[in-house]
Amino acid sequence: MDRPIRVLVAKPGLDGHDRGAKVIARAFRDAGMEVIYTGLRQTPEQIVEAAIQEDVDVVALSILSGAHNTLLPKVVQLLKEKGAGDKLVVGGGVIPPDDIPYLKSQGIAEIFTPGTPTSESIEFIKSHVRVEA
């Protein structure tokens, strides 16, 4: 595939801890991806609209506020409702292990918890993304 993977890095929820989001955005860039970074305090509606307009392959959501069980599934659900359910949705942040099975059942492809090397997230995306060559 000769075109770069397009990723939306977004922060749903109200927390301002964007160290992880910014580090992962840079790591994705350095792995040859086109990263659309949308900043703090994004509602699921805003995230989904951006994902559609930018026609990204991947939606990467970083959240440390504890509202993941509410907000992450909502992003997936809205994407489906709007006919953009083909995008790979992944999440990262302080997310208790207990919540991960639920999030996966709601369509989040993978959850990356603290300490995950960026290379692991990059590998996951490269092997799971659906990009027509």
Binding site: P4, D30, Y37, E45
Partner: peptide
């Protein structure tokens, strides 16, 4: 786009957040 990695960070949308859900507006980075 970075000439070395082929990657890019497209950050202009950050300052256009108020437009994201405006049905008359379509933004592409």
């Amino acid at each position: 786009t970075s000439p070395y990695t082929g990657g890019a960070i497209l950050g202009d949308r950050i300052r256009m957040q108020e437009l994201f859900t405006d049905p008359n507006i379509f933004i592409r980075s």
